[in-house]
């Protein structure tokens, strides 16, 4: 079955969505991510959507769900790289995704996650020692 790969990097999980997702694929990603968060005890999730040309209410809801579920599992979520046209459309659609943290690009997103993690625990040495691992 078709799946979106999830990469692990230290305490973080990284997903880049590069295909026009149909609804089931989005739901599978939601399931996969939540089970990976609890399996790896990840503290942060980064979802890069810079390649997505549209985000409709279904995908928007999926992003909000992931963020909410991750929070319950003690992980921060950041969505990165939303295209201007996509952002304008989402706002017009009435979806402002208030609970979601966002960043311009992956680099800023990682900074944000590290900063959030640093606030909670004073052991910044733990991350970025591992190379990316295919999920």
């Amino acid at each position: 079955m078709e799946r979106i790969p999830i990469l692990q990097m230290g305490q973080f999980l990284i997903v880049t969505i590069q295909v026009d997702m149909h609804d089931r694929l989005a739901l599978t990603l939601q399931d996969d991510l939540t089970s990976r968060i609890s399996a790896t005890n990840a503290k942060g999730v980064l979802i890069d959507i810079s390649a997505l040309e549209i985000v409709d209410s279904f995908i928007g809801r999926m992003l909000a769900n992931i963020s909410g579920m991750a929070r319950i599992l003690d992980a921060q979520t950041v969505v990165t790289g939303m295209q201007p046209a996509v952002a304008i459309t989402l706002v017009e659609l009435g979806l402002s995704l208030p609970g979601i943290k966002t960043a311009l690009n992956v680099e800023r997103g990682m900074q944000l996650l590290r900063a959030a993690l640093g606030d909670r625990q004073a052991d910044p040495e733990q991350d970025d020692v591992d190379a990316p691992v295919e999920a």
């Binding site: 969505v79 790289g81 201007p84 952002a87 989402l90």
Partner: peptide, 12 residues
């Protein structure tokens, strides 16, 4: 307000 919201969605 919409501009502000869209900018926030992009992370700014």
């Amino acid at each position: 307000l919409k501009t502000v919201t869209a900018a926030r969605l992009m992370g700014t």
